[in-house]
C-alpha cells in the first residue's frame, strides 16, 4: 500500500490525475478509448468472418489487420499504465481490475492463437473453417466483451478513482 500511494503521489501520477490540462487525464482516457475501438473492433471483424459472415471474403489478407490490433493493444497498455499509476491505491485494490486483466490476458492469448492456428494453416481459404477455429472466434468475442464489461464496472465497484470531480457513479 505504501508503494501504491507513493506511485500515485509521484509527479507523474499527480499530473495525470489532477492537472487541469486536457492533455492529462482526458487525452489519456481518449487514447484508451480509440485503442479499444481498434483492438476490439478489428478482432471482432475477423471473428465475425471466421463465424461465417461475409463468407466470400478471403481470410488470408485479413492477417494484415493484426498490426492494427497490436497497435491498439500497445496504445492501451501505455495509456492504461498511466491511468493505473494515477489511481494506483484505488485501482490496484479493486478486484474488478484483476477480472479485467484476466479477460484481457485471455483475449490476447486467444488473438495469438487465432493467428498461429487459423492464419498459418496452409489450408486457409481452401476449405471451410474447422470447428476449433470457430470456437476460437466465439471465445475471442466473449473475452473482449468480458474485458469491456469489467473495465466499465471498475467505475462502479470498489474504491472511487478517476479525475477529481469526475463522478462516474450512480447517485
Amino acid at each position: 500500500m505504501q508503494f501504491l500511494l507513493w506511485l500515485e503521489r509521484s509527479a507523474l501520477g499527480s499530473w495525470v490525475r489532477e492537472s487541469s490540462s486536457l492533455w492529462a487525464y482526458p487525452t489519456i482516457l481518449f487514447a484508451h478509448t480509440v485503442g479499444l475501438g481498434f483492438l476490439v473492433g478489428t478482432n471482432t471483424a475477423v471473428d465475425l468472418r471466421m463465424l461465417g459472415f461475409a463468407e466470400r471474403l478471403p481470410l488470408a489478407p485479413m492477417e494484415r489487420f493484426f498490426s492494427v490490433m497490436w497497435l491498439g493493444f500497445w496504445v492501451n497498455a501505455l495509456s492504461g499504465t498511466l491511468l493505473l499509476i494515477a489511481d494506483a491505491s484505488t485501482k490496484l485494490t479493486n478486484p474488478v481490475f484483476y477480472v479485467k486483466m484476466a479477460f484481457v490476458t485471455l483475449a490476447v492469448v486467444n488473438m495469438v492463437l487465432i493467428r498461429r492456428r487459423v492464419f498459418r494453416d496452409p489450408a486457409l481459404d481452401t476449405a471451410p473453417l474447422a470447428g476449433p477455429a470457430k470456437v476460437l472466434a466465439v471465445t475471442s468475442l466473449f473475452f473482449w466483451m468480458g474485458a469491456i464489461t469489467a473495465g466499465r464496472l471498475m467505475a462502479y465497484f470498489g474504491p472511487v478513482s478517476g479525475a477529481p470531480g469526475l463522478q462516474n457513479r450512480i447517485p
Binding site: T33, L36, G37, F38, V40, G41, T42, N43, T44, A45, L48, R49, F53, A54, E55, R56, L57, P58, A60, P61, M62, E63, R64, F65, V68, W144, I148
Partner: peptide, 30 residues
C-alpha cells in the same frame, strides 16, 4: 463503439490501401 469502429475501420483501411488482397464487394457484407 467497438463493432462500429472495427468494421468501418477495416473497410476504410482497405480502401486506403491496407490488406489489398481483400475484395471490396464481400468486405462490404460486414
Amino acid at each position: 463503439l467497438a463493432l462500429l469502429v472495427g468494421v468501418v475501420g477495416v473497410l476504410d483501411l482497405r480502401m486506403l490501401g491496407m490488406a489489398k488482397g481483400l475484395p471490396l464487394g464481400p468486405l462490404q457484407r460486414l
